[in-house]
Amino acid sequence: MKNKLTKEEVLHVADLARIKVTEEEIEKYQVELKKLLDDVEKVNDVVGYDDEILIAPWDHNADLRNDSDTRMLEAKEILKNAPNHTGNYITVPVVIGESEGA
């Protein structure tokens, strides 16, 4: 087993996480991330468990919220922490393209 990730692998995970990494950092991450990935590899050594999953230790099923109750904040509250805003809008200081999602 190799003891570090390739540079490309580091760049790939950094991209997934949307974190810019410097050349110097890449070298460190090659080793550090590999160490963590080796740790989690141990999950494949565990045997004897069944297929059922535990997503979270919920003690009850979902309660549903009544659609008639409303609670909102004023726009000025909403804008308070926004680094960039114009009028009532929060802004992204560059023009973005088409959405990926939904």
Binding site: T86, I90, V92, P93, V95
Partner: peptide, 11 residues
């Protein structure tokens, strides 16, 4: 999102 020439507005 509404795109302006220098920024994008989010509602």
């Amino acid at each position: 999102s509404t795109h302006r020439k220098d920024k994008t507005l989010l509602d």
